[in-house]
Amino acid sequence: MSIDKETVKKIASLSRIAITEAEADAFVPELNQILGWVEQLGEVDCSKVEPMTAVIPNKLRLREDVVTDGAIRDKILANAPVAEHGFFAVPKVIE
């Protein structure tokens, strides 16, 4: 698998990261090196190995359906650059 400059720019845009042309150029070989390094794993045949989801034997724990949280609006909004009337206020996004 190999990445070209267009792919780098697209990923940056999907991730909402602004990058310059020069940075895009620089990322192409860097990302390809990382991918090449990871691709070495493909040399091992693990088609008969269950994917490991946790390093210790562990099961997904579930919660009871009870209300235990909320009613902390001040904390929720504390870090918002702009909050008005109990809402987060963001630059207008409309279709």
Binding site: D69, H85, G86
Partner: peptide, 30 residues
């Protein structure tokens, strides 16, 4: 564990998990 009740005042039924604060972990509702 935040409530799902309809029609509450804005942002009063939000936990730090829902607001995606760093370090929060989801726990599935049975």
């Amino acid at each position: 564990g935040a409530s799902t009740e309809f029609g509450a005042e804005p942002n009063t039924q939000v936990s730090l998990v829902d607001a995606a604060m760093p370090g929060m972990l989801p726990t599935l509702n049975a």
